[in-house]
């Protein structure tokens, strides 16, 4: 890993150049108060101050709805043969990079998921530092900084970005415009240190996850689940926006005009009533409190049992999005009480 600096005025020129060689994706304002990752269309559209997009970067490797193959009588099974373009996603904060790390593990566990990896393998990441808002829980989840996954990471200082060049791809990117990068000065290094502390001080909300897996297990029968499930709409929004929720459904759709069948996979949510329903009508998680609880168990324990860490990256999307105002911090606090 090496460090370089890039002046703020140089960033537009750098991104312009990157977008000439890669499909570049950047955060843009989409709604009145929300953001989305979109193809780069000039620096003026880039929302440098954004905190989180509605839909996390998982959409690029694991789209909401994806055709897996098509079947036609006669031709049999045909899969897509197009090569996904080499892409760079700009503007990923540590939480989202952690989210990608978790999905990488999920989609490599057991058999590698070719559909995920065909795009993932061709994507590089430029990280961007951030300052937390009231929904950010990365500090609590220990995902507030990251040392891998990214290719370049930009730490915002007053006049420059301190750029961490972690991979050969990152170096390739820098070498697209070597004129824009230079060695950091002692003053910039000092400023970088100050910024770390300033950021620390901005975390106003902390979710205590000490022994959380144990507490969730001990409070398996707690009435907390019942209480929250009365408020929860079971709308699935929290799952859709979560950078690490990976559940999907598989189904067929046949075009009656051509009799071509496409096998799709589509995002699914464990809060859904027939998620665990089997033939004969037995439902392993029919009751709402069980489904509400399961999401927490899966985020905090399920994945950890296999990979040694919880899957919540503290990105804050679920709490910000929830139409019922259900907040992860509040749920966890209720369990601790």
């Amino acid at each position: 890993m090496i460090f370089r600096t890039l002046t703020k005025e140089s960033l537009p020129g750098f991104l312009d150049t990157v977008s000439g060689s890669y499909r570049l994706v950047v955060p843009e304002q989409k709604g009145r108060d929300t953001y989305a990752f979109r193809p780069y269309s000039g620096f003026h559209k880039v929302a440098m101050g954004f905190l989180r997009t509605v839909i996390p970067p998982k959409q690029f490797f694991f789209p909401p709805r994806e055709g897996l193959f098509q079947f036609t009588t006669g031709a049999g099974i045909e899969t897509a043969t197009d090569e996904p373009p080499s892409s760079i996603i700009f503007g990923l904060h540590p939480c989202d990079l952690h989210g990608i790390d978790i999905l990488d593990r999920v989609f490599s566990y057991g058999e590698r998921d070719t559909f995920y990896w065909r795009r993932r393998e061709k994507t590089g990441f430029i990280g961007l530092s951030c300052l937390p808002d009231k929904y950010c829980l990365c500090k609590s989840m220990h995902t507030d900084f990251i040392v891998d996954i990214y290719d370049l990471f930009l730490y915002t200082l007053d006049d420059v970005y301190m750029v961490s060049v972690r991979t050969a791809l990152g170096d390739d990117l820098v070498r697209l415009r070597p004129d824009l990068f230079r060695e950091p000065t002692a003053g910039e290094i000092a400023e970088y240190k100050d910024r770390i502390e300033e950021r620390e001080a901005k975390f106003t909300r902390i979710m205590d996850i000490t022994n959380l897996a144990d507490l969730l297990t001990l409070e398996y029968k707690s009435d907390v689940w019942e209480r929250f499930s009365q408020r929860c709409l079971f709308c699935g929004s929290c799952v859709m926006v979560c950078p690490t929720c990976q559940c999907f459904d598989v189904f067929d759709s046949t075009d009656p005009l051509t009799n071509t069948t496409v096998r799709w996979r589509r995002w699914d949510a464990c809060m859904r009533k027939d998620y665990a329903l089997v033939t004969g009508g037995h439902n392993f998680r029919g009751a709402r409190p069980e489904r509400f609880r399961f999401r927490y168990l899966h985020k905090e324990i399920g994945f950890a049992e296999m990979h040694g860490k919880p899957t919540c990256t503290g990105c804050g999307r679920c709490s910000e999005t929830c139409p019922a105002g259900i907040d992860m911090v509040e749920v966890v606090r209720s369990i601790r009480e």
Partner: peptide, 19 residues
């Protein structure tokens, strides 16, 4: 067999109820 919100979120819409 799911609520519209899931479809709405898959499109990345800003939630009208929430925002």
């Amino acid at each position: 067999n799911y609520p519209l919100c899931m479809e709405c979120k898959m499109k990345g819409n800003e939630c009208l109820l929430r925002y």
